[in-house]
Simulated assay, not measured.
Amino acid sequence: MLMECLILVAMWLFGFLGFILFIPHKEWRKGFLAFLMFQAIVWLCDMPSFQFGLLSAPVRVLPKATDLPLTINYFFYPVLFSIFYVNKRAKGSLWSRITYFFVWVSIITLFDVVIERFTDLLEYGLLSWWGMWIYIWLLFFVSQVCCNWFFKDKALFRAEIWSTK
Rank of each mutant, 00 (worst) to 15 (best):
F118H: 09
L138P: 02
F157I: 09
F102D: 02
L33I: 14
R117H: 12
R158H: 12
P69V: 05
D46W: 13
I161L: 13
F102H: 07
M3E: 10
V79G: 02
F102P: 02
G125K: 07
R97P: 03
F118T: 07
L2I: 09
K152A: 15
K88F: 09
L70R: 00
K64F: 13
F52W: 15
I115L: 15
W129Q: 05
R60M: 12
I134A: 14
H25W: 14
W149T: 08
K30C: 08
M37R: 01
Y74D: 07
V142E: 04
Q144F: 12
L36A: 08
Y85E: 06
A90W: 13
A40G: 13
K154G: 08
R29F: 15
R89D: 11
R97I: 09
A34M: 10
P58R: 05
V113S: 05
V61S: 09
M1K: 06
F111D: 00
L139E: 03
G31Y: 04
K30R: 13
V59G: 01
P78Q: 10
G31M: 06
P63E: 06
L62Q: 07
S128K: 03
L80A: 10
V9I: 15
L68K: 03
T71Q: 10
E27P: 01
V114S: 05
W95I: 14
N73E: 15
Q144V: 09
S93G: 12
V103R: 01
L54H: 04
A10S: 15
L139H: 04
N148P: 01
L121G: 00
F38Q: 05
F140I: 06
S49Q: 09
F141P: 01
K26C: 07
F150L: 13
R117S: 12
T66A: 09
F111C: 04
D46H: 12
A40V: 08
M1S: 10
G18R: 04
S163D: 09
